[in-house]
Design a protein around this nucleic acid. Structure first.
Length: 257
DNA sequence: TGACTTTTTCCTGGTT
DNA sequence: AAACCAGGAAAAAGTC
């Protein structure tokens, strides 16, 4: 499953699936070995764990950030980690990585990674050391680059709603499935969800009234289907994706994002 | 830059 | 009466 989702381009969507499925089904093998031996998949598992643990909003992350293997990950210092993953998740990740490094420290020869030094008068030259082999885009590795470079894909309203729904462990009581298989769901705290949506869009004046207008525009595009008679209830339509339990590994991204 | 898409804002009117 | 639902219109934002 991990491999399949990785091959999909919808980065953050794949990360969500990791959070949901990876942590339960496919064990945490990365915990058994040194970070220096982690594969890109291990790194992704590790990140997913922290996303879940810190209740970080994964939708602001790009999978591109995570396409890095253990050896390269270990070369990142705290500042870089924070620059890339933000002030919340970054430090968590850094500390966790240090712990794993220490735990398996004796086994390897490299070391000296956290040159948390502050003499980098040469930002552009850095993150990559000589044998960089990951697929990480260099554009990300400059100070202050927290946002995704181009369009943060997956920021549409319906995706935001979907992502709340597929994260039952976090966002408790905000929304719930009425019929998971059919894609019928309901707002439990309509104004709270609207506030969160507003927060994401940097708009403090968002309300459910306005959010719901945007939702209604989805009917014509068949991203949502109308459910009448039931207040605060909506249903995903055929032009939405990423919410079906059977859909994992196929069909995601078949629809415009 | 300009066309196009999506979301926001506002509104009138109806329903639960 | 409060909280929703339906959409039209148009502005604002975001994308390509």
């Amino acid at each position: 499953i991990l491999t399949l989702t990785l091959s999909l381009y919808a980065g953050y969507t794949a990360l969500h699936y990791n959070v949901i499925n990876g942590s339960h089904s496919s064990g945490h093998w990365y915990k058994q070995i040194s970070p220096h031996q982690w594969t890109a998949e291990h790194v992704l598992e590790w990140i997913s764990d922290h996303v879940e643990r810190t209740k970080f909003d994964a939708s602001t992350l790009s999978l591109d950030f995570c396409s890095i293997d253990g050896p390269n990950l270990c070369r990142i210092n705290q500042e870089e980690m924070t620059a890339v993953f933000g002030p919340q998740l970054g430090p968590h990740l850094y500390q966790s990585l240090e712990e794993y490094k220490t735990k398996y420290g004796g086994t390897f020869t490299f070391m000296s990674s956290p040159e948390s030094g502050s003499s980098e008068s040469d930002p552009e030259f850095y993150p990559v050391s000589s044998e960089y082999s990951g697929t990480l885009d260099l554009a990300f590795w400059s100070y202050g680059t927290v946002e995704v470079r181009h369009a943060p894909r997956g920021t549409h309203l319906w995706e935001f709603i979907r992502d709340i729904l597929i994260h039952p462990e976090k966002n408790q009581g905000l929304m719930k499935w009425e019929d998971r298989r059919e894609g019928v769901f309901k707002f439990l705290k309509s104004e709270a969800v609207a506030q969160m949506w507003g927060q994401k869009k940097k708009n403090t004046s968002m309300t459910y009234e306005k959010l719901s207008r945007a939702m209604r525009y989805y009917y014509k595009r068949e991203i949502l289907e109308r459910v009448d008679g039931r207040r605060l209830v909506y249903k995903f339509g055929k032009n939405s994706s990423g919410w079906k339990t059977e859909e994992i590994g196929s069909g995601i991204g078949g629809v415009s994002l």
